[in-house]
Amino acid sequence: MRAVILYILAAILAMAFQLLLLENVQLLGYLNPYYYPILLVLWPLKWNRAVGLLVAFALGMTLDLFENSGGLHASACVLLVYLQPYLAKSLVARALEEGQSLTLLALGSSKFLTLTAMCMFVFHFWLFLLESFAFNEFFFVLFRTVLSTAVSTAMIYATQLLMVTRE
């Protein structure tokens, strides 16, 4: 119960941060960093995945509303939350059975960074690919994906680090 309340609080904070601050920031002229997918990266493996899909859909649709992008974010979020356990499993062998927590504190820096980077890569690649929807822009999409993944991962790592040092 406590974990659920904490998650909801974290979700409100992360979405506020995303919508009120980051939506108005453009790095290097055209790079819009996304922070809110951390909520899906950290979706506990013990929790119901069907609920996870619905939460992902709702979060994505909220972003879509702000960005006028129809359902692009919802699509990328749903994909991310669906693939997240498999990505986690590839890193931590028995992650699924043991319901391993995926926070920085539980995983350690290198595994946490790898997991976040993989998740953010999937998220951004799918988002930019759908957005461009043209194969002749493939390398531009890839370029944007790599840049955005790096920035988002760094941001997520920084905030997690803050929480770890607090505790």
């Binding site: 619905l54 649709m61 129809g70 359902g71 692009l72 919802a74 699509s75």
Partner: peptide, 23 residues
């Protein structure tokens, strides 16, 4: 397969919303 089906459902909904002309 409820998870996979739910995945397809939400994904389909999102994509329809994204590519409809006047959403």
């Amino acid at each position: 397969y409820h998870l996979f089906l739910l995945f397809l459902l939400t994904q389909g909904w999102a994509l329809t919303a994204a590519f409809r002309d006047h959403p």
